[in-house]
Design a protein around this nucleic acid. Structure first.
Lengths: 361, 361
DNA sequence: AATTTTATATTGTATAGACAAATATACAAT
DNA sequence: ATTGTATATTTGTCTATACAATATAAAATT
């Protein structure tokens, strides 16, 4: 029985709740015709006005659509969801590195499909990410592109779950997380680093230092690529010229590493800088120490920041495309494409400029 | 009489329309109590259920609030608007120059007050700005921070009017427009350029070239500042070393200007580059021509892009603060602060590095 | 002075019934 | 083949009535 006549809960409300349940449980599906008022009258014994009250409420709540003479129909909620046109982008800092490239990729792809991009900078902090997540949830977004913060994996999972519990689609960009099966888009950091190290080896370098952070798996993969290339060419790894750091990047700290490494430059002929900003520190430090790049030491970077005046050999990561692909992935999910989580790995490409010297031969 | 009993328009609908009119005309103001159902019954002669139907509709439309025993009240629409928490930012390109700084300033200020920032890149084109404007209007924003495009003033007015017609607040940032009295935030481009030119003069330079675009009034003001400084120090202006261009910036075209000017370097000892990107072109071109900065020629830029390795003397514009101030201005307007349009001019500051040589003496 | 009760105004819930409007369908007329 | 007409069905509009729930204010009680 639908209606409990002894309950203190209003009858129209009982009927209304029952109807929502049926719709959400899929008993009444999208576009199904629900019983007519007369049928409900026979079914529940309520007055027609009471039944109308319940149905009217659901109409103004967006569950139902009434058509004269034809009946009352369930509205396709999924289709309605498509009309939510906001997408969140949670990025460490829009001012940092290639963040603007990525944001623009997302934005262009979003605009093409009439979606708006809400920008949130997390500063790589869990608290800020959580704060923004709550705000985004309130402004009813249909999906979010999330670049995990520098906080623990657990904290990042918490953020992701918060969205998922509310049926907000999540795509990770750039950085992925272990032990979570979710859509993500990244670049081939391992391959890129391998290719770049191989290039140094082919240029005659065998003693190659590296300075890299291990905060994110993207960075760890670069380190792995570097090690694998050395191993494949039977070059033994010298732990004293591998400098890693698990803390978030800071210019001062890395300036120390860079200077230290340059002081031991008899140990090596080339250096793999974990990213272009570290490479730039090498340029600054080298200048101070009266060294020339590439004559005294060869440097490669990673990221391909737009540096204009410095001819740094590096690997270009397609951040604009990463933004595009992330957005496209979300759009496919919004359109209802199901299937197991997708991992999209974009090709980066090596950019040879003039920061590496041919040695030997 | 409120209700026309002979009209084919439903009576509940007549009452409903009448009520909306009264509210919008201010007969019933925010928080006013409207007549009770009983009073309406006496007033209109309709059945209570009919009156209820009209009122109920207005409740679900967000006009009215009912309180048991107390009556029915008009909802404060302005207050409701405050709960619209989206702000648009229409910027030429998030990847360009200091756009990320500005965006972050807006974002931080927005987040503090629980507002979300919707990012729109216009590429300085009217069509894209119009496209985004339409989208923003649909996603019901309460305000927009607009950086006028490179299109004609008229076209920019059209965009602004589109927002204003819909009671969406508009604040211009960085660039202002002539003949329109509207809130805007900018920096002291005239003063900044004057200060910088004065610095060159005090360093002993009298023959000072300039390469600058005249697309935006910010740039024109810099040109004015430069001219005023020369005039104040009784230095006659040499038109052949003033290169202006009214088209949007393009690297190739400006590379030509830069190279041309360097070829005539016997005519001058210093150059004012309209912005840092132009200054960088001077570095590139000088390198190619075997010239050294500042030994062969002194350069000053404008903007203070984060260049890391190049020690360019320039003027720093507080873009982050510009974003903050723009957002604060919108917030004050949202909160209902009226009064004539405000023009906020932020102080920029001169940054002396080492791209200028002392000459003479 | 503080607390409890009571009265009362107002919206909330519910029923019963009547007629109107719209529209899909079938059928008839042209 | 098109147009018009009738019919049944379903939602839409409207009236009349009754009692419930609730919050305020006034009154009564402690």
């Amino acid at each position: 029985m639908i209606i409990d006549r002894n309950s203190p809960i209003p009858k129209y409300f009982q009927l209304q709740t029952w109807l929502i349940e049926q719709i959400e449980m899929g008993v009444f599906n999208a576009n199904d015709k629900i019983p007519t008022e007369q049928e409900f009258k026979n079914l529940t014994g309520l007055a027609r006005a009471t039944i109308r009250q319940a149905i009217q409420n659901l109409v103004s709540m967006g569950y139902l659509l009434r058509k004269r003479r034809l009946g009352t129909f369930v509205i396709d909620q999924r289709r309605e969801k498509q009309h939510q046109t906001n997408i969140g982008l949670m990025i460490p800092d829009i001012r940092m590195g290639n963040a603007p490239e990525l944001a623009r990729g997302v934005e262009d792809e979003a605009a093409r499909t009439q979606h708006s991009l809400i920008l949130c900078s997390t500063d790589d902090l869990y608290v800020k990410a959580d704060f923004h997540a709550n705000r985004l949830i309130n402004s009813s977004i249909s999906g979010v592109i999330f670049i995990p913060t520098a906080a623990s994996d657990d904290k990042n999972y918490q953020i992701i779950e918060k969205f998922m519990r509310r049926n907000i689609l999540v795509v990770l960009a750039d950085r992925s997380l272990p032990q979570i099966d979710i859509d993500y888009v990244t670049t081939d950091n391992f391959e890129g680093a391998y290719r770049q190290t191989e290039y140094l080896i082919k240029k005659g370098h065998t003693r190659i230092g590296i300075v890299i952070s291990t905060t994110f798996n993207t960075m760890r993969l670069r380190l792995e690529g570097y090690k694998k290339a050395l191993a494949d060419y039977n070059i033994s790894v010298n732990a004293s010229i591998i400098i890693t750091d698990s803390l978030p990047y800071s210019e001062e700290r890395y300036m120390h590493y860079v200077t230290d490494l340059l002081k031991q430059r008899d140990k090596m002929t080339a250096i793999f800088a974990g990213h272009d900003r570290i490479a730039l520190l090498f340029y600054s430090a080298a200048k101070k120490m009266g060294l020339s790049i590439p004559d005294d030491i060869s440097i490669v970077g990673y990221d391909d920041l737009p540096l204009m005046t410095i001819k740094l050999t590096t690997t270009h990561q397609p951040f604009y495309e990463m933004g595009q692909e992330s957005m496209r992935l979300i759009l496919r999910r919004i359109r209802g494409e199901s299937g197991s989580p997708q991992q999209i790995v974009l090709k980066s490409f090596f950019v040879e400029r003039s920061s590496v010297l041919q040695v030997g031969k």
